[in-house]
Design a protein around this nucleic acid. Sequence first.
DNA 1: CTGAAAGCGCTAACAA
DNA 2: TTGTTAGCGCTTTCAG
Lengths: 339, 339
Amino acid sequence: MASGRSAGRVRLQDVADLAGVSMKTVSNVVHDYEHVSASMRDKVQAAIDELGYRPNLTARRLATGKTGMIALAIPEIDQFYFAEMARNIGEEAGRHGYRILVEQTLNDVEAERAVIRDREEGLVDGVIFQPARIDTLEIARLRPGTPLVLLGEAARPVNTDHVMIDNTRAARDGVEMLLRGGRRRIAFLATVRGDITESTHLRLLGYQEALLAAGIGLDAQLVLQSDGFGLDDGVRALSSAIAAGVEFDAVLCRDDLFAMAALRALALAGRRVPADVSVLGWDDTAVARYSTPGLSSVAPDKRALAATAFALLEDRMQGFDGPGRHEIVPHSIVERATT
Amino acid sequence: MASGRSAGRVRLQDVADLAGVSMKTVSNVVHDYEHVSASMRDKVQAAIDELGYRPNLTARRLATGKTGMIALAIPEIDQFYFAEMARNIGEEAGRHGYRILVEQTLNDVEAERAVIRDREEGLVDGVIFQPARIDTLEIARLRPGTPLVLLGEAARPVNTDHVMIDNTRAARDGVEMLLRGGRRRIAFLATVRGDITESTHLRLLGYQEALLAAGIGLDAQLVLQSDGFGLDDGVRALSSAIAAGVEFDAVLCRDDLFAMAALRALALAGRRVPADVSVLGWDDTAVARYSTPGLSSVAPDKRALAATAFALLEDRMQGFDGPGRHEIVPHSIVERATT
DNA sequence: CTGAAAGCGCTAACAA
DNA sequence: TTGTTAGCGCTTTCAG
């Protein structure tokens, strides 16, 4: 194994030379093309092995015009929900022969614009994007040159494919479950100052609809507002409501993180869960399964989300050029120990 | 905006034609080359804008031989620790002008081999890889053609760069902290059947060293074994120890997930944390911060891990060809409410 | 069944 | 300061 030549620099032509055949023939065996005589195949394979030849994927991409890769642009990969979506989408893509390039926008407006504009040009065949800072109108204006599908709510109908759950309906389902459990004073934790996404509003709407439908008046005191997205922000929001004497026997949370915050605030205040207060999270991430008590949570069907997003994207990548489609995937409520 | 031409298919040559200049000139303005007359620059920029030209990154890569991308190969992106490492490495890489391609091996031997062999050939300039199923000897044998650095322990010195924390020392530190807190019967949760990685053994070693150094005899009953890596496996391991009458006043866990399992098993058994039993997790992932009570955890310096791994890799990508280097990064113990 | 040669779109000498 | 042109390594007609 006297490897004098530097690894990775062996080209198709080198193999062809050594085997005494043309590039086309080598290419044929590399691709397992069937009409190649056994002897030819062996000879070429021997040359490939001897040289340790590995096709240069970049060159292949340029020649074929296909990258076999899709970008997944999300705010932060280390947030449970996004990490789980990344896994699901990665697996779904893998099943269809694609790989994913994870692009973190880190909640930066410019990073999000770049995703739409040109960041991935020629690098990927399509992009799946969950925006957090730019709205659908701007996305439409930027008109990416690459097939695109959006994850998450769309503030208004736009001419871009997107897939989401029915946030309003899911919130209503959650509140109804709480009501069935005998709860009457249900708090919503929380709207976040500076959150421009539509989901919270849709969830808040569902929360209100369910209450009204049950003949329970709305109490503005029960809609908590937080100063940020962090655990401490959530703890603070709920703790100060408690300190202010706001009465409640359940908390519907905007995400599992805030549900963890609720659990903490409740523990600090000496309230028992679920005896005194029920807690319902949102997203059904791993933390809901791992916490004690196990956290009940509104569960978007993440696999359906991934599969649908990929399917829409694949249509586009194969040339579909119709108007933007709008898909709703199922959700459910996973009951554990906090309700 | 009558876009007759299909988006994304505008080439450098098209811009050159429209502007009435050569490709080189267009290239110059695209790259902000300084010696370009203002008028020329304006003319070209106008053509670029009119056509909506965006460089094809794949072609650029082929021409330059640089991809500006590194692969991060990890078992599962939705495990807290890996998600956090992905974020850190992504940010570190970003600061140096690189992007990362996350490759999930999903604990599959073949997937891991592929990473080393040819999966990324020509796609990335380097690879950062945390193996879970193949050992360093095999990695050495496969001799990747792309610069590589390993994350995590190395069973024996091999000729590949790698970076890790001192697992034995960290375990010792953890146990010593528990001892200082007055604990004497410290359980280790847990070794996992079928786990081939070295870390658990190193940690177990540190655990034993600390006990011995404190003049406390080892009790084999306190070293628990689990049937798998999941939460339930951990709960079961600890619960059956409790059921078997094993006495302990602290639990050192192999990771935060098992610490969450410990919290659950302890709650089921009616043991209070930390009054009756202290729990110390490992990895200091987000779940440690979010759980109630807040989980104390052994904290590898993930940023240092990311920065060091990247630095080693960058050396290699720039041609360094010396023997494998072995870097140890700091760890600490974050005390929260469970100790 | 195998070979020759023209690209894929961009970069970077080298010229002018 | 700007233009010409030969690659980068692979795919893919089109011949033979």
